[in-house]
Each structure stands twice: as C-alpha cells, then as structure tokens.
C-alpha cells in the first residue's frame, strides 16, 4: 500500500494525479501512524513554510514515526526539507534524517531571482531514483530555501550556489524538485521510487 502523509501542508492533488499517470490506482492519504508503518511506500509532500509543516508533523505525532519507518520514504520539496537537520525558515528543528541544514538563497547577483522557480538541470546523479535518467536532466523547482551539499546528496543543482536537488540516506529519499510536475522525467523518477 502506498501512503501519502496527510498533514495539511499543501495541495496533494498534483501528486495523486501524477501517481495515477504512472499506474497507481490505490493509495491512502493518511496521518495514522499505524497505516504509515504498514505501508510499502510513504510519500511526504509539502509546499509552503517548512516550520509550519514541522509544527503540523509534531502536532500529529509524526515527527517520531517518520524517522522510524523501514519502507522507502520520499519527501518532496518541503517534504524533503523537513527531513533535514533544521531550517532557517521559522528557525525550525527538522527530523534530522539528512545531515544538512536548510538555508535561504541569498544571491549576490540581483539578476538571480528568488524563489528559484522553473526548470533546472541535475548533475552528479547517484541513486536508483535516477535509473534511466541522464546527467543534465531537467526537473521543475519552486523554492526559496535549499539544503546544502552533503554526504547524502545524490543529485545537485545550482542557483547562484550549488545545492542538493535530491538526498538519500538508507531508505529515505528526498527531492527538492517536484517530480509530479516534471514531465516524463519526473514520472520516471516516481516510477523508479515505486519500483525500489
């Protein structure tokens, strides 16, 4: 069973539509720890403010559940950021799965726009998430905060500074970009995650 964490951190319609397009017909949108612990895959979406998302996870008691999951877990955008050590956004303590901090883009060059929005290319791909995807593949990003490059980085991108486009540690995966909005390459990544 595929579980999507329901913690009121943005619209999950896009993700559900993308899952349908890769052939998923059943999923559970849930915040029930029992269901999450029995799932074969857990997806943690998220848009908006990371500190609000973390407060919501704590309120639901999921801050201890998520790090204890044994199945493959994929955090998307803010869903990835909350799995880091902490975020500058709202000065929030994260779930500490990925050993890196989330900080705000502060470009020296005024022509570098914040948020980082649009399609950017990935380099240094090293995860089964990217099977069948080439160096330089473009994915769709919308974010103002980023996770630095660290030992967990499995794909990098660059927006005035290099940053982690994807992270992996053990059974935990995170993408700063939105695979559900990244065309056929994003669909491939979701398919890869579901096939792990």
């Amino acid at each position: 069973m595929i579980a999507i964490v329901d913690y009121d951190a943005g619209n999950v319609r896009s993700l559900i539509n993308a899952l349908r397009r890769v052939g998923v017909s059943e999923w559970e949108l849930t915040s029930d720890p029992e269901l999450l612990m029995s799932a074969d895959r857990v997806l943690l979406p998220g848009v908006g403010d990371a500190s609000v998302a973390l407060a919501s996870l704590r309120f639901l008691g999921l801050d201890s559940v998520i790090p204890s999951l044994k199945c493959p877990v994929l955090g998307i955008c803010v869903g990835m950021q909350v799995m880091c050590r902490g975020s500058e956004e709202g000065d929030a303590v994260g779930l500490g799965i990925f050993d890196t901090d989330v900080v705000r883009f502060i470009p020296g060059d005024p022509s570098v726009k914040i948020p980082h929005m649009g399609w950017n290319s990935l380099t240094g791909l090293k995860s089964p998430l990217f099977d069948g995807l080439a160096e330089g593949t473009f994915m769709y990003f919308v974010h103002s905060y980023y996770a630095g490059i660290c030992d967990c980085t499995v794909a990098a991108s660059e927006h005035s500074v290099p940053f982690s486009a994807a992270l992996c540690k053990d059974n935990f995966f995170g993408t700063q970009f939105h695979p559900e909005k990244s065309g056929s390459d994003g669909a491939r990544l979701l398919h890869n995650f579901l096939s792990l």
């Binding site: 319609r13 896009s14 539509n17 993308a18 349908r20 397009r21 769709y140 559900e180 909005k181 990244s182 065309g183 056929s184 994003g186 669909a187």
Partner: peptide, 8 residues
C-alpha cells in the same frame, strides 16, 4: 487538465 498534464 490537472489529471492529464504533467507540467505546471
């Protein structure tokens, strides 16, 4: 559109 289209 949102069901079918996989870009923003």
């Amino acid at each position: 559109i949102s069901e079918r289209i996989d870009i923003p």
